[in-house]
Structure formats: structure tokens, C-alpha cells
Computed example of a mutant assay.
Amino acid sequence: MSTPIQDDVFVEATSALPASAGTSQPPRPASPAPDPDRAVAARTRQFDNARLRQDFADQGAFLYLDDFLAPEVTAQLAQSARDLLVEVNRNYLPGHKQGGSVSRHTIDRLAPFIAQLYRSKELIGWLEQMSGDRLQVSPADDPHAYALYYYTRPGDHIGWHYDTSYYDGRRYTVLLGVIDESSCRLDYELHTRNPDIADQPGSVQIPPGGLVFFDGDKLRHRISPAGENEMRVSLTFEYVTNPNMRPWRRFISNMKDAIAYFGFRQVFRQLMKRSGDTA
């Protein structure tokens, strides 16, 4: 068995644009976005969902599909990811993480199609069918509810970790391939929390449109380092079974997000704004 690791310990953060970003420009007008519900329904009705549900259970709450999103949805996400390059907040945590990210708060302003896909009833219904749980969207103040992650400089990576849930219930992660012009791989270990089953290592290079769905507290995983002149962008969705979070866990979660992902300004500006709206 692998020794379960503690959630990320963050040491240092820096904010800078990725080397591939150009000058700051507003996102370009896009062609009409596809309807998320129709696009997801058209894909999922083609799957052998009973078999996929069994695969998810047999693999300890893990499922990988290399061709999940409709091509027009993938194209829309890729365009949004390139438009948002100038919004990337970069972080460096020695020995653990290097890369960039864009939180749901920025996405809400500049790439609303991503939020629409996240809330797609067809997508959530299919995920519920796979997991056997009733899933809810993450609270409005959670910057990780949906976020883009950028690997655009040599050495960009994230080390071994779990997507630890600070919520009272379970938190499921959906990882979607958006752009992959890289050698980066998702390395993972199944069953590390189950003493009755031997650990099972695996590794995949997620193509644009591919999907990984897993229980964040059960899958130990990492992203291997990017090489020279490479670019990888992934999109994650987080769904919960219980949206309640205790205050001390909320503080830890906010500090983690501010230091390791989105920056203090992004995380705490949103919190202060919401506090002012309810005062």
C-alpha cells in the first residue's frame, strides 16, 4: 500500500503571466457556442453506461474516457483557454508545483460557456449515474468549482497529491482535456485508500475532449513535467455531495487556493465582495 499523503503544503507563490501569453487583450468574439445539454446528451447516449458504471466501481471511483466531449464543445473550450492566457496566475511551490491557473471567478466574467457546461443537467445526471451519488454544484464562493490549469513553461507540473475535500461530504473531480501540445501525463494510483486491494498504478495522456472522473479523496495522482515549447491546458469541474464546510476548513481551503492557485487578490476579493453584498 502507498502511504497516504497529507494535502498540499504550500511554501511560496508568485504571480506572472506564462511565457506564451501575449499583450493583454479582451477575449475575441467567438462563434455561437453549442448547447451544453444537447452536446452532452448526444455523446452519453452512445456509451455503454452500465459497463462504464461498473468500471468506475471496480477501479475504486475512477473512470477515464479518451473521447468524451463533442468536437464543437472541445473547440469552444480551447478558444476560451487561449483567450484567458493573459489572466493566468502563476505559482511556484518548490518540490511540488509549478504552473498557472484561472479560477471560476475570472471564468464567470470572461468565458461563461464553461460555467454553462459545468451546470449542464445532462452532464450532472450522467455523473450521478456513474458515481451512484446525488451531486450538487460547488458553492458560489469556491474558486475551484471550475478552473483552468495551464502548463506552458518547461518544468510545469504538480506532484503527487489527493484532491482532498474540505466539505462535509464527498467531492468528485471531473478533469477535461482542453489543449495538449505536450508530453505531460496524468500518473495515478488506484485503491490506495483500500487496504484489501493492492495499489494499481496507471498513466494516461489526456487528449482534447478526454475525461477523467474520480473521487478526489481516493485517487493519488500527479501531472508530469512539461518540456520545452510545450503547452497543456486542462479544465476541472468539482461537484459535492454536501456543500457545507466548517469555518476552520474554509479558512484552510481559502489559504490553499490563494497561495497555490489563484492569488490572494482573486480569492479574498471575491469573499469580501460577497460579504459586502450580504451585509
Rank of each mutant, 00 (worst) to 15 (best):
I124E: 09
L135T: 14
S131H: 03
L110G: 05
I124K: 08
A39C: 08
A41C: 05
D83W: 12
A78M: 07
R90Y: 07
H96Y: 14
G125S: 04
M130A: 12
V73K: 04
L85I: 06
A145G: 09
A78S: 13
E72Y: 04
D55C: 05
L127N: 04
V40E: 03
D67I: 05
F113N: 11
Q136W: 02
D58A: 06
R43H: 08
D133T: 08
V40W: 01
G132E: 07
A111V: 11
Q136V: 15
A75W: 07
A78W: 08
L93P: 01
Q79S: 14
A140R: 15
Q116D: 12
S101K: 04
N49F: 00
Q116L: 10
D141N: 15
R53C: 07
M130V: 11
D67M: 02
I124C: 08
V137E: 15
V73Y: 00
D141Q: 15
Q129Y: 11
S120N: 03
S120R: 04
L65I: 03
G95S: 12
S101L: 06
N89F: 11
Y92T: 12
P94L: 08
A75Q: 13
P139S: 14
R43W: 07
A147T: 06
K121S: 12
W126I: 03
F62L: 09
A140P: 02
G99D: 03
G125Q: 01
D142Q: 03
W126L: 06
V88F: 06
L117M: 02
S131E: 06
T106M: 05
T44M: 03
P112Q: 11
A111E: 12
Y64R: 11
L77T: 08
A42S: 14
A111W: 13
G100W: 12
R104T: 00
A61H: 13
T106S: 07
A81F: 02
L123F: 06
V86Q: 11
R104P: 00
Q116T: 02
R109V: 04
M130H: 03
I107N: 01
V88P: 06
A39H: 01
F62K: 01
Q79N: 10
L93R: 10
A61C: 15
P71W: 11
T106P: 02
K97E: 01
N49D: 13
L63A: 10
